[in-house]
Design a binder for these strands. Sequence first.
DNA 1: GCGGCAACTTAGTACCCGGCGA
DNA 2: TCGCCGGGTACTAAGTTGCCGC
Length: 965
Amino acid sequence: MTDAQSIHIQNGGSCEVVQSNGLTTNGHGHHHHHHSSSGSSSKHKSSSKDKHRDKDREHKSSSSSKEHKSSSRDKDRHKSSSSSSSKHRDKDKERDGSSNSHRSSSSSSHRDKDGSSSSSKHKSSSSSGHHKSSSKDKERRDKDKDRSSSSSSRHKSSSSSRDKERSSSSHKSSSSSSSKSKHSSSRHSSSSSSSKDPPSYDGVFVKPEPVSQSLMHSGPVDPFQLQQLGGYETAAAANCNGNGNDGGVNYKNGYEESIVDIKKEDESFNNLSQASSCDYSMSQFRADEPPFEVKHEQSYVEEDSSMNYIDQDDEGEEMDDEEDVPLAMRKRKPEATDRSDGGMDDDDDDIPLLARKKVKKEKIKKESKEKTKKRVKDEPNDDYGSAKPKKKKMKKEPEVVSPTKRQKAKVKEEEEEVWRWWEEEKRADGVKWSTLEHKGPVFAPRYERVPRNVRFYYDGKPMELSEETEEAATFYAKMLNHDYCTKEVFNNNFFKDFRKSMTSKEREIIKDFRKCGFNEMFNFFQAESEKRKAATKEEKLIKKNENEALMKEFGFCMIDGHKEKIGNFRLEPPGLFRGRGEHPKMGMIKRRIQASDVSINCGKESKVPSPPPGSRWKEVRHDNTVTWLASWIENVQGQVKYIMLNPSSKLKGEKDHIKYETARRLDKVIDKIRATYRDEWKSKEMRVRQRAVALYFIDKLALRAGNEKDEDQADTVGCCSLRVEHVQLHKELNGKENVVVFDFPGKDSIRYYNEVEVEKRVFKNLELFMEHKKDGDDLFDRLNTQVLNEHLKELMEGLTAKVFRTYNASKTLQSQLDLLTDPSATVPEKLLAYNRANRAVAILCNHQRSVPKSHEKSMENLKEKIKAKREAIKKCEAEYHSRDEKKGKQLERLKDQLKKLELQETDRDENKTIALGTSKLNYLDPRISVAWCKKHDVPIEKIFNKTQRTKFLWAVHMADENYRF
DNA sequence: GCGGCAACTTAGTACCCGGCGA
DNA sequence: TCGCCGGGTACTAAGTTGCCGC
């Protein structure tokens, strides 16, 4: 099966498919499984926080489990979850048994090894097991150096299980709590998994297909493109066939069918050249590309065909020169550092680069203490004004043509403000502005006490609270009907902070969260909200005007002589921290920001904004090398927050433009880069191989880089931070060979699930990387984002991991548009094509959204409308026997309308779980869209709303219809 | 050289508000 | 005119990356 195929499948990713693996595909199953795994508490986790999390997890799992039968594996994990740490080992064993089959099926021998050695492992772990990171590395080193003793990673068991826990919990959270509908609700298409039967979109948003270059092995072929070929072509047909229930089916089909055939997967490495028979014109690869010289010379020890595990093993050893050591040892636990290092010889290289353990809490504390110490930069602003570029302002806005006069007037109005910075020369020196003046941020409104008859209850009795305590109580009360309030971590964190805000007397009384009654307050806020909604027009107008006045005064700044919109001119109001996924800090109180917390940045010559009467800013600086206007340190995570400009501003737009130009430069060298990393899969150095495989994933699957994270953040991962538990290897799966199943919580704890057919060499490398590792161990233990980005910088100036996402997204849009747009189609049809191209990107980037609550209903409505329209047509047709021209026209009109409705239906359903906005806003070179509109006579307003048009004004002006990414 | 901070981009969700149909 | 729906916007969390100072 081809990659393309696999893509589809994934997209549709039906539960069945997964189940066939032994995994439940649906979101619940997923949680479940993670869940249970989490149960195995490692020794590390003794903190109450962890305990809470565990509890939380358990809780969740039980609630979510009803929906799906968990697979046997799930069950195993589940079981284990309840076990105490002492059972943990058994659990591990169990898991090894049950899950190994998922994992590299071909490497059973390793598994066995693992299993057999596990006991000894554990033993050793008792001495050093706590120090996960170091021991991990050491183990690996040992392993590498001492191949024969192979049972390296066992010590890690404790740490790894802990990691596992974390990961599982986050998964769970993503599906069960925050993103409820996302992973669940799936309608499982019948799917039995044939590749042709991708899972439906619904519900389980299975990660979209890897839209990328699966064909790498076949030489210069862009898998991406290939996969996309045919994209939605057959969608229309699919629509007709698609079973009505399963909206996803249509999409699937559309995607699948055409794509599937396009690439013939050519598995053997030996056949690389053959595969290159692909149509290069559609590919990112160029046939005439000169070979890229591989940076590190080396005789490849192994030949493609000869590469087998044992060989690799050997190689691995051989490879182990000093540098070839796991960076990894990511300390997930602070204690890890004290591990005693047994026999491990500490090569310098063996120092875990990644083992950066930040103890943020301390940081935060320190922060507040050192506030005063903050640098007060007084920028040498001698050059203010000197570097000021010439500006041509206010030219007429040609592109945004609106049909109505009113709109035209509006456009003109907007235009007046336009600063055509893209026609000016760029400043090269890192100076962001010459003059900057603004009014400072808007503070959150003061707390107003609730009416006296709205009371807090404790132990069933009303209780008067001090103002601060009451305010904290209202934070919680306002969220009482939110999912968050069902989470133990949230409640515990809140209660801890709630008590901090109390007077000693109150603290004396209020000791049990369960006895707190917020209902009256909750009802009050509900009523207030109703009242607001029910306000009269006049009242609403007054409010609106007030808002506008505020916006007028504080919402803009003057920068280099131009008025620019500020993005967020209001300081974040106090409230409860809503971390996503299983965030250990969710529920903590975000405190109110005072002027004394806020740093102001403005031009030296400008008027300094005035703080509220009686207060002072924390600091006023004049730093023209940064773009922010105000900043403060948020108390929950200790991060700096900023007030910056709106995306329509020059500063943002210029950056955006540069970003896409960098991506376009990548296009010029991508073939070489791909050739290089493919070569590096054979490297003698483990470090290099890992880097190459990781880069392959980043390129092929548009994975994020994957920085290390702290203990006090949700456990999410990206490419470099993937752990063994996040991938499963299948020699064969659903008719595909060398399949890697990715299943991990990504950014925002959004689940990434993808079954990807990879090249054999990648597959074997992965087996090697995973050898002797536990679930919680790092897959790429010799790699981190810094290392990767440093390498990338050598390949191309300005290249970083995230450029690949931008590049592949834009490239996909371009190719999909080429493919899907029928020049003779109507505008609505073209729009569907555009949305589908956009959707392909969103799928690639895994941009999900929860199914809108109203989705089902709105689909029903739409169906009703369609039905009605069909009837009208029928009726009209019946009356149309005479050659009545009028009737004929009416009939035509009706048919048109029907078609529109049907297109709308398809579009909406396909979009159910996919968020198009994110990619449109952040990854797609807007010039592609602009050019497409110009070329196909589609009004730009049809694809960019007003905000987007403002943000991309530069692109509207820059691109003509011939623009190519 | 590495750890941590700072700066900035990317992300999903909550909610507002305007338009449209009944 | 009213109520609903859905797009758009506001909000802020969560990423990535660069760089500085120890």
